[in-house]
Simulated assay, not measured.
Amino acid sequence: MSGATRTVDLVDAIRIARELDLPRGIVWEALVDADLVSGWLHPVHRLVTGTSPVEFREPDDPAAPAVLEVISPSFGDVRIALIRLDGGTRGESTRLELSVSDEWGRRSEREALWALRLEQLHALLRGHPVDWGSWPRRHRAADAEARAEAALRPAR
């Protein structure tokens, strides 16, 4: 990603990690490809919106993480590190480490919503995108509220 890199405030960040049994290049596509993102994050909003093209480049050191950092008007400051792991059914798996800003309180609800989003990402990667028409109302309300709060946050 070009331009200045901003890092999620580590003091207030929500942190969640998941291991995915897929190579990190595939996981990366699910983070940035509009069609794939609509299958796990939200049918309208994207992590990467209105930014320069974002592309995956394998780090020079295979042990170094691939990182996506965005400041999203819908989701706040988001940092996702993808760490390559040996093994898995395709010879490589990925550890996804998410850090997302949490400046508005109600941390447990926001953390639960991000955990749900990562479960949806995992399901998408197994071929099961979210059926947004049947997504439970309680998730819709929590998601809309979290995005509305992020949109009102002052620019840094």
Rank of each mutant, 00 (worst) to 15 (best):
D33I: 02
R57Y: 00
V70H: 02
D131R: 07
D61F: 08
S101M: 01
S74I: 05
W114K: 08
P154C: 11
R126S: 14
A64N: 06
L98N: 05
A81N: 06
W40C: 03
H122G: 14
I26F: 08
I26C: 04
A30R: 02
H122Y: 10
F75P: 04
A141K: 12
I26K: 15
L116D: 14
A151R: 09
L113A: 04
P73W: 04
E149R: 15
A17S: 15
D60E: 15
F56G: 01
A144I: 08
R107Q: 01
E109H: 11
P73A: 03
L116M: 14
R137G: 12
R147V: 07
P23Q: 10
M1W: 02
P43V: 05
S38W: 05
A155F: 04
S52A: 15
E145W: 10
P53V: 06
L10T: 12
V8D: 03
A81R: 14
A17K: 11
E111W: 11
A148N: 08
L125S: 06
H122V: 07
G3D: 14
L68K: 00
W28N: 00
E55V: 13
A34F: 08
P129F: 04
S72I: 09
E19P: 00
V37Y: 03
R90Y: 07
E29H: 12
L125Y: 00
S108E: 15
L116C: 07
S108H: 13
T94Q: 06
W132E: 09
E109D: 15
G88K: 05
G105K: 03
A150S: 10
A17M: 09
L98G: 03
A146C: 05
Q120T: 08
W114P: 07
A148M: 12
E103D: 12
I80H: 06
L125A: 04
D9Y: 10
T89N: 09
A142K: 10
I16K: 06
E29M: 05
A30G: 00
L125T: 04
H139A: 14
L98A: 06
R24Q: 12
L96M: 09
L152I: 00
L41C: 09
P59E: 05
H139F: 14
E69D: 15
A4W: 07
V48E: 04
A155V: 13
F56L: 02
R90G: 00
H122Q: 15
V67H: 03
L152N: 10
R46N: 12
R110P: 03
